[in-house]
Design a protein around this nucleic acid. Structure first.
Lengths: 219, 219
DNA sequence: ACTCATCCGGACCGATGGTCCGTTTATGCT
DNA sequence: AGCATAAACGGACCATCGGTCCGGATGAGT
């Protein structure tokens, strides 16, 4: 996957001096090394030193490129997240626009859980290492989406708060705990999450009709 | 509050050498100092050094008494938690045994949120600093209770997983975020939590028969 | 080939959690 | 009261880790 990235393109563009070739290469190696270390040794045992060393670069390089630990994890999360965001913002219907909000929300939760599961260590790292600013940005995008869907499903709810509670329920820590320390199947987690959602979607939906039609208000 | 603690009693008991008087006093001072620092400076700015200094003891004393940071936070949480546990395990009905499971669960969530809110910084500290072992113990007690209630409410659910998701939803991190960074009222959080619970409690009770809802389940 | 901006790398720094050990002192006994 | 001793004290000390700095190396345009 890492190598599969379509490469941000050398960008033969003008403007000012393009990033030097070795710098580009190093960035890639650092990202790859970080991903590997994170996956095989866990979050706790992955130090910045170790990442730099594994990538075969000096610490200076590492820090200049990414600023700090938060920056690195953010970069790591970046493409994964971007893809997911595109999917639920403008992808095909079950997840993207076009399906009723309740279905979209359910699908969203399902998919987010799957995504977290495939990048468990990374997700936990981001969750704990990211500074307030970074977390806000990452969390913010997801929260906004959930908030919108929740508001659409049941306008009487305090969408902002409900959204945060929901995201908290399926946060990296929880999933990590269930999967790694309890040996729970991912499907079981997804199923339980759906059970929780039923309170928002199912119940109300019994008088379905789907309030759609009236586009999506801009709360 | 701190001073209000009923004192573990001098225990004039026998056995082997009783804990020395100064040791006892120091433990109390450390606990009090830690609580104060945590409350007024936040989790991030509270170092072990600072705690020892504020308590007027050496670091050696601090660490010998509590082992490590996790031990200290655990001790800090201890009596608060013990009281809460007693309340929901053997206290009066709305929370303790005697009321229907769904009501108990709702009350439990309400109360836990209130408790977390009054000890926000401490709760976050415990959440982040506690080692796996400690967290398991603290979380375990709560999780067991919720699990039991959930199982009672709807035996068809995977109580263990649902319980963890629920606790994740109202975890210290989430509450901290909502209360401190979003200025959300505690009541709003409790209300949103109840909305989530509705899926487990209310829905089933009235046998509303969720329509197609789960038709598109594939994964 | 030449020049210069950019980048590299690892020595270095400050903070912080945690350990060690010589010194002090509460406690029980005489 | 005086004493012996185990327990507790306290702060110097250590190791780790995130993050900074700067002299030296190097890629890229001319």
């Amino acid at each position: 996957m890492t190598t599969g990235a379509p490469q941000p393109v050398p960008l033969p563009l003008a403007g000012q001096r393009r990033e030097r070739g070795d710098a580009l290469a190093n960035r890639a190696r650092i990202l790859e090394a970080a991903r590997a270390l994170l996956a095989e040794r866990g979050v706790n045992a992955t130090t910045m030193d170790a990442v730099a060393c594994a990538a075969g670069v000096g610490k200076g390089t590492l820090f200049r490129r990414f600023g700090d630990r938060a920056g690195l994890t953010e970069a790591l999360l970046d493409d994964t997240m971007r893809a997911f965001q595109d999917a639920f913002l403008s992808g095909p219907p079950p997840l993207g626009p076009g399906a009723p909000a309740s279905v979209r929300l359910e699908t969203f939760v399902d998919e987010l859980l799957r995504l977290i599961d495939t990048q468990l260590e990374l997700a936990v790292a981001a969750d704990r290492a990211a500074g307030a600013a970074t977390r806000m940005r990452l969390h913010g995008a997801l929260a906004l989406h959930v908030r919108t869907l929740v508001a659409e499903i049941d306008p009487s709810l305090d969408a902002e708060v409900v959204a945060d509670l929901l995201l908290g329920a399926i946060g990296a820590r929880v999933v990590h705990h269930l999967r790694r320390e309890r040996d729970v199947e991912l499907a079981a987690v997804q199923s339980a999450a759906r059970a929780l959602l039923r309170g928002l979607t199912g119940t109300r939906a019994s008088a379905p009709a789907i309030p759609e039609a009236d586009a999506h208000r801009t709360s």
